Amino acid sequence: MTGLAGIVAAETRLSMVDGENGRLIYQGYLAKDLALNYSFEEVAYLLLYGKLPSKTELHGFQCKLAENRHLPAYLIRILNELPEDMEVMSVLRTAISSLGRSEFGWKPNIDQAIRLIAITPVIVAYRYRQQHNLPIIKPSDNLNHTANYLYMLTGEVPKDVHIRALTVYMILTMEHGMNASTFAARVVTSTHSDLASAIVGAIGAMKGPLHGGAPTEVIQLLDEIGSLENAELYIRGKLERGELLMGFGHRVYKTTDPRAEALRSITSELIGEDAWLDLAYHVEKTAIQLLDEFKPGRRLYTNVEFYAAAVLKAVEMPAELFTPTFTVSRTVGWTAHVIEQADNNKIFRPQSEYVGEIPS
């Protein structure tokens, strides 16, 4: 079984994953530069429209996102009737499918994409607070996309340091080439199905732990280290015992993961403002030194999961929301791919090789 590894399934202008050179490119821009210098809304605009927005365009885009944050009454009724033990990703899948009405007819467009990008974090926050018997927080029209998400989860206006860190994370996970969930969305679209259906397919793929799995093992590593003083002794012990060091090495990037580079950059700016980020930054430096000592020439660098874990824990994101938060950001990439697929469509119809018995 090849899993279509190495097979080119589509042409795209949206992103390029350059594993050999450690580059992730969005519409002609390095993703790490975008993450460090632009807002979530600006990068989302770039992926959807193919250019960075002017001030006027950005304001209009921000207003459209804010206008589309509010849940319709029928969707609230659906959310209130779903089984109490239904996890957030399954709820999100069901909720998005309920939006597949006439407003999501063929063919997919940017207004439809804005609707889904805006409403996805609202659904996640609603369900999280509902499951934990917390009062539902209505979306704010005055906060940006990332800040509003944190506000709806906690009921408090988030700290600037947390908004900044989560924004960088969300930009860097917004898009990443022809991954499993993006492929699923494009396959659904290729049948001339609607945008909501395509995103439901993508959510279904993201829900699987082999794709959207949370970086919980990295958090366990950092928890076990516990302090700056304990880092070298702990890591050296693991390497001497031949144990894996979670958060280091990547099957695609043969050099530094550019997403980890950007997240490292933002955490280094925030040293002294958040103890958890301080610990992560120190652990990474110590681990890289020791990996070079124990495994010279292996090119084992920090991957995005290491700093994803650091950032998500720093902003006090519950572990159960790691994959949903990944989904909140990746909805931008999915919708951009769906629109691109629809603009130059051909139905996906791959072949399979029969390996069963042949009747005589």
Rank of each mutant, 00 (worst) to 15 (best):
V8F: 00
A9L: 15
A9S: 15
E11N: 15
E11M: 11
E11V: 09
E11T: 11
T12D: 08
L14C: 12
L14H: 07
S15P: 09
V17L: 12
V17A: 14
V17Q: 03
V17M: 05
D18L: 08
D18H: 07
G19T: 11
G19M: 07
G19N: 05
G19F: 12
N21G: 05
N21W: 05
G22R: 05
R23N: 09
L24I: 14
L24N: 15
I25C: 01
I25G: 10
Y26T: 09
Y29V: 03
K32H: 12
K32R: 03
L34G: 14
A35H: 07
N37Q: 09
N37D: 04
N37R: 09
N37A: 07
N37F: 05
Y38Q: 10
Y38E: 12
Y38F: 09
Y38K: 02
F40Y: 09
F40G: 07
E42N: 08
L47K: 14
L48D: 10
Y49V: 10
Y49P: 00
G50P: 01
L52H: 01
P53L: 12
S54A: 05
K55R: 06
T56V: 14
L58A: 01
H59A: 13
H59P: 09
G60P: 08
F61R: 13
C63W: 08
C63M: 05
C63V: 12
C63A: 11
K64E: 08
L65S: 08
L65F: 12
E67Q: 13
E67K: 04
R69I: 03
R69S: 01
H70Q: 01
H70E: 12
L71P: 08
P72N: 02
A73C: 10
A73F: 13
Y74R: 10
L75H: 09
I76Q: 10
I76S: 00
I76W: 02
R77Y: 04
I78P: 01
I78F: 12
L82T: 00
L82S: 06
P83V: 08
P83A: 15
M86G: 02
E87P: 02
V88L: 00
V88R: 11
V88A: 00
M89H: 12
S90E: 04
R93G: 00
R93A: 00
R93C: 11
T94L: 15
A95E: 09
I96P: 15
I96E: 02
L99C: 10
L99Q: 13
L99S: 02
G100H: 06
G100P: 13
G100D: 15
G100V: 15
R101P: 00
R101V: 05
P108Y: 11
N109P: 11
N109L: 05
I110M: 11
D111H: 05
Q112A: 12
Q112K: 15
Q112Y: 13
A113F: 14
I114V: 09
L116M: 02
I117T: 07
A118D: 13
I119T: 00
P121N: 06
P121C: 02
V124Q: 02
V124T: 03
